[in-house]
Design a binder for these strands. Structure first.
Length: 264
DNA sequence: CCTATAGCCTGACGGC
DNA sequence: TGCCGTCAGGCTATAG
């Protein structure tokens, strides 16, 4: 689930629940999710501190501590945050649990353990080391930057949109939605897209991601014209009602409408 | 330089 | 019912 819109919603959730509260207990249930830090060190970095603010870049969430360091959260393919009071609730995969002095907890859930948790002192440096491209919703990420990110690529447009080094934040699900709304098939090579199509793709990308955030990344709230709610076997196109096609594109499962999305 | 692919993990689902 | 293969919304290392 966790692509840019989902992570943005997690950010808003963390902002609304977990800022300015003293952290008095940290438990690491799975060290596999830790990156560049031991459980002991992570505990030491957090206990006695507070979260002050958050930032997001692509699919990464950064939480600033009152000592200036940042907790980094990445959610992998299955991950989420949950704030709650009573333990032994329904968070069977909480790999990492924060206890606040008010008696509440924040659980970092990562069922498949493909997420990552760490602490860094410099977000910019982290982004550079990970070689992440510009955030897809950054105001500075304009048409010019979009063209620059994709120009000369021979990859499929789906793979290019999903490549975090080119653009940060778009994953398998939202690339399908963007391409559906843009009327472009996922197999199309990026270098075949010119002028108008590229511009359309750019605007649609922004639009889809913003809309998803407005809908709290909940497919149940998405507009009727969206692919995601019917993106499964047996789904039919919200525009023409024909059956949705499922294919592998650049190693990932892609869904599209063969009638509404033009052949490359 | 580039793109494509296997593997990391766990759990849900469908077919036999 | 039970077992087994397949697949899942991410990323990385490695091969071509």
């Amino acid at each position: 689930m966790p692509e840019l819109p989902d992570v943005e919603v997690f950010k808003q959730y963390l902002d609304a629940t977990s800022l300015h509260k003293e952290i008095d207990r940290v438990k690491v249930h799975s060290t596999q999710v830790l990156e560049g830090i031991s459980a002991t060190k992570l505990r030491r970095r957090l206990e006695g501190h507070t979260f002050e603010s958050t930032r997001r870049h692509g699919k990464y969430l950064f939480v600033r501590l009152n000592d200036g360091n940042w907790l980094v959260l990445h959610f992998g393919m299955t991950g989420s945050l949950k704030y709650f009071k009573d333990l032994d609730k329904d968070t069977p995969h909480d790999r990492f649990l924060i206890g606040f002095s008010n008696g509440y907890h924040l659980a970092y859930d990562s069922q498949r353990k493909l997420g990552k948790v760490g602490v860094v002192d410099d977000v910019k440096k982290f982004i550079k080391e990970k070689d992440l491209g510009p955030d897809a919703l950054d105001a500075n990420f304009d048409m010019r930057a979009f063209e620059e990110a994709l120009t000369g690529r021979t990859a499929t447009v789906k793979a290019a949109l999903m490549n975090q080094q080119y653009i940060a934040g778009i994953g398998n699900i939202y690339s399908d939605e963007i391409l559906f709304q843009a009327g472009i098939r996922p197999q199309t090579r990026v270098n075949r897209l010119k002028g108008k199509n590229l511009e359309r793709l750019f605007h649609v990308s922004k639009e889809v991601l913003r809309t998803a955030i407005d809908c709290r990344a909940d497919p149940g709230e998405f507009p009727n014209s969206y692919l995601i709610p019917v993106r499964h076997k047996g789904g039919s196109c919200p525009k023409c009602e024909r059956a949705i096609c499922k294919v592998k594109v650049s190693g990932r499962t892609a869904y599209y409408c063969s009638h509404c999305q033009k052949k490359p």
